[in-house]
Write a protein that binds this DNA or RNA. Structure first.
Length: 552
DNA sequence: GCTCAGTGCGCC
DNA sequence: AAAGGGCGCACTGAGC
C-alpha cells in the first residue's frame, strides 16, 4: 500500500510525501492548494492511503471538487484512540508535539473563509506523528485489533464527510406543511404560533394563573404547586400522572412547543438548503467511540418530522437497522454460546425465552437492559441470578467491567478503545467523581464508585457495538461505490445518514434491491471482522422506501 | 452584555 | 412504568 502524507506549507502550498514501507520518504511533490484534487485524481487506480492530520481539514474541499478518496489515515482520530488504549505503550507514542495532537479539534464550519487564521494544526508535524503511530501499533501485542479499529475509524471519517457533502434528502415543503398542520401558520419571529397561543390561554385559565409561562420550569412548577398539585418537577411523565383539567393542554403545549423550538421553521431555515439537510457528524465524538453530531441535532431527528425525508424523483431510501445490536455484541465479545444461541433467533429476547432462561420476552428485555446498564433494583435486579446462571460468560463480562470501574481501573472495548480514567486523569485514585465536586461523605464516595462502575459496564458493550457499526459502515461504503458505475459520489448509491445502529442509503430506484443485499453482506462482514468464526448473527430490518417515515 | 449550570426532551 | 448507559440542543435564570 502506497502511503502519501499531505502536509500544509505556508502560502497555501501542499507537500505530498510518499513513504516506503519502512517510513522513509521516497518522493516529495510540491503542489499549490488548488492542485490537490487533480493530484489525487492523477493517482488513478493505484492503491493509495492518504495520510493527513484531520479528515475535516482536507476532505470536504476534495469532495466539492468531485474527488472521492478510497482510504485514509486520520492522525487526529488515531491519536485519540492510541492515547487511551491499554494496548499501547505510551512511551512509543509520545513525542514533543503530543499535547498539540491531544488538543486538536475537528473543523465543522462549511465556509473556509471562517477558518481561524491561525490553525493549531499547522504547528504539528504529520510525518513525525504518523511514524510514531505506526511504531506504537507495530509494538503492540494487539496490533491486529488496533489496526482494524484505526482503519475503521478512518473510514468513518470519510463517510462522515461524504454524508455532510451529499446531505439527507429533505423536502422543506413537506416539512412546512407538517408544521402548519400542527402549529398553524408560521408566526412572526419571536411570536408563538397560533395553536400554542390557544393552548396557552387554556392552560392559564385552568390553573387560574394569567401570567403563567410554561416555557419556564421554575414558573411552571410554582404555578402547579399553587394550584394544589403535589409535584417537585415538571417533566411530562410526572405530569401525566396528575388529574387536573389543565394537564392535557399543558402536555400538548409541551409536545408542540418542543417541535417548534427544535425542528420548526428556524431549523428549516438554518439546516435545509437545496433539498438537503446537512449536519456535521463527528466520528469518535463520544468517549465510547460512538459518533456525536454538530448542527441541527442530527442524532435526534424526531420521528415526527421524518416524513419530510423523501428520496429524489426516481430514487429510493434504503433504511436498515440492526435488531438488538448490543446484546448480540455482548454475546460475541464474551463468546457466550448460550446467548449466541438465543441470538440465532431474529428476536434475541424471544430466543432467551425459548432457551428457558426467562419466562417472558418482557423479562428478557428488562433483564438484559439491566445487565448492560447496571440496573440492580426492581424487576431487572430480580432477573440477574437467572441470567447469570444461564449466560455466565456474557453476564460475567459486564460484571467484571463494573467491578474494574469501581476499583478505578481502565476497561476497554474488543478492539482496544480504552475508557477514560476516573477523575479525569488527575492521578487521584479516589477521584471517582466530578471535577470540582467535594470529597463528601463515605456514602457519597460509594455512590460515585458504583456510578462509575455502571459507566464502565456500559462502556465495553456500547463501545464494542460502536466498533461493529463502524465496520459495517466502512464495508458498506466500499460496496456501494463498487455498485454504482462511474459517476460522482452523489450520482451513485451513497450513505446519507448513520445513527448508532441504523443507516440510510440514497440510491437510484433500479439499484435498491442490490443495495439491500450489500447492506446485509456488510453486516455479515462486520460480524466476521470482530468475532471471527464465532457464530453470532446480526439480523437487519431493511426497508426500501420513498420516505424515511415509511421504514417503521 | 456575556457565560454557565440546570431543566427538560428528542434520539439510540 | 421507569430505571440503568451515551449524547445535542433550546431555554431559563443566576452570576460575572
Amino acid at each position: 500500500m502506497n502511503r502519501l502524507v499531505l502536509v500544509r506549507r505556508g502560502e497555501g502550498g501542499i507537500d505530498a510525501l510518499e513513504s516506503a514501507e519502512d517510513g522513509t520518504v521516497v518522493q516529495t511533490t510540491r503542489l499549490p492548494a488548488a492542485g490537490l484534487p487533480g493530484f489525487v485524481r492523477a493517482q488513478g487506480r493505484r492503491p493509495v492511503r492518504w495520510v493527513w492530520d484531520d479528515t475535516t481539514r482536507w476532505y470536504p474541499q476534495l469532495l466539492d471538487a468531485g474527488v472521492r478518496v478510497e482510504r485514509c489515515w486520520d492522525l487526529r482520530l488515531a491519536h485519540a484512540v492510541l492515547r487511551r488504549s491499554p494496548f499501547v505503550d505510551q512511551a512509543v507514542l509520545v513525542g514533543s508535539d503530543t499535547p498539540g495532537w491531544d488538543g486538536l479539534q475537528p473543523v465543522t464550519v462549511a465556509d473556509p473563509a471562517l477558518f481561524p487564521l491561525e490553525d493549531p494544526a499547522d504547528r504539528l508535524d504529520p510525518v513525525a506523528e504518523h511514524a510514531r503511530q505506526q511504531a506504537a501499533v507495530a509494538a503492540s501485542a494487539e496490533r491486529g485489533r488496533l489496526g482494524l479499529l484505526l482503519a475503521a475509524e478512518a473510514s468513518g471519517a470519510l463517510v462522515a464527510a461524504e454524508m455532510t457533502h451529499a446531505g439527507l434528502p429533505w423536502r422543506a415543503d413537506v416539512h412546512g406543511r407538517l408544521l402548519t398542520g400542527l402549529l398553524g401558520p408560521r408566526p412572526a419571529s419571536g411570536q408563538r404560533p397560533a395553536v400554542l397561543e390557544r393552548l396557552l390561554t387554556e392552560i392559564r385559565a385552568a390553573f387560574a394563573a394569567p401570567a403563567l409561562n410554561p416555557d419556564s420550569p421554575g414558573d411552571l412548577l410554582r404555578g402547579l404547586q399553587a394550584a394544589g398539585l403535589p409535584v417537585s418537577d415538571t417533566r411530562s411523565w410526572t405530569l401525566q400522572e396528575l388529574e387536573h383539567p389543565g394537564i392535557p393542554p399543558l402536555l400538548e403545549y409541551k409536545r408542540l412547543s418542543r417541535l417548534h423550538q427544535a425542528n420548526g421553521w428556524n431549523w428549516l431555515d438554518t439546516w435545509v438548503r437545496d433539498g438537503r439537510f446537512r449536519s456535521y457528524f463527528l466520528p469518535g465524538g463520544v468517549v465510547t467511540g460512538r459518533w456525536a453530531s454538530n448542527g441541527g441535532g442530527a442524532l435526534s431527528v424526531p420521528t415526527q418530522i421524518r416524513p419530510a425525508a423523501i428520496a429524489d424523483e426516481g430514487w429510493r431510501l434504503v433504511v436498515a437497522d440492526v435488531a438488538q445490536l448490543e446484546p448480540r455484541v455482548l454475546a460475541g465479545m464474551s463468546r457466550d454460546d448460550a446467548m449466541a444461541e438465543a441470538a440465532r433467533s431474529r428476536d434475541l429476547y424471544q430466543g432467551m425465552v425459548a432457551g428457558g432462561a426467562v419466562a417472558t420476552r418482557a423479562e428478557a428485555k428488562v433483564g438484559m437492559l439491566g445487565a448492560m446498564y447496571g440496573g440492580t433494583r426492581g424487576e431487572s435486579g430480580r432477573m440477574m441470578p437467572r441470567l447469570t446462571r444461564r449466560y455466565p460468560r456474557a453476564i460475567g463480562l459486564v460484571e467484571e467491567a463494573a467491578r474494574a470501574g469501581e476499583r478505578g481501573e481502565v476497561v476497554h472495548t474488543l478492539l482496544g478503545r480504552g475508557s477514560p480514567s476516573p477523575g479525569g486523569g488527575s492521578g487521584d485514585p479516589d477521584g471517582l467523581g466530578e471535577p470540582g465536586e467535594q470529597a463528601g461523605s463515605p456514602g457519597d464516595r460509594d455512590r460515585r464508585r458504583r456510578a462509575w462502575g455502571r459507566f464502565t459496564r456500559n462502556f465495553v458493550v456500547q463501545g464494542t457495538g460502536a466498533e461493529w457499526a463502524l465496520c459495517w459502515l466502512a464495508d458498506l461504503r466500499n460496496r456501494l461505490w463498487r455498485l454504482g458505475g462511474t459517476g460522482r459520489l452523489e450520482q451513485r448509491p451513497h450513505l446519507v445518514f448513520f445513527l448508532h445502529d441504523e443507516v440510510v442509503v440514497h440510491t437510484p430506484e433500479q439499484l435498491a434491491d442490490e443495495v439491500v443485499e450489500e447492506v446485509r453482506r456488510a453486516a455479515a462482514e462486520a460480524g466476521r471482522l470482530l468475532f471471527g468464526s464465532f457464530p453470532i448473527d446480526f439480523p437487519l430490518d431493511v426497508a426500501v422506501v420513498r420516505s424515511w417515515a415509511d421504514a417503521d
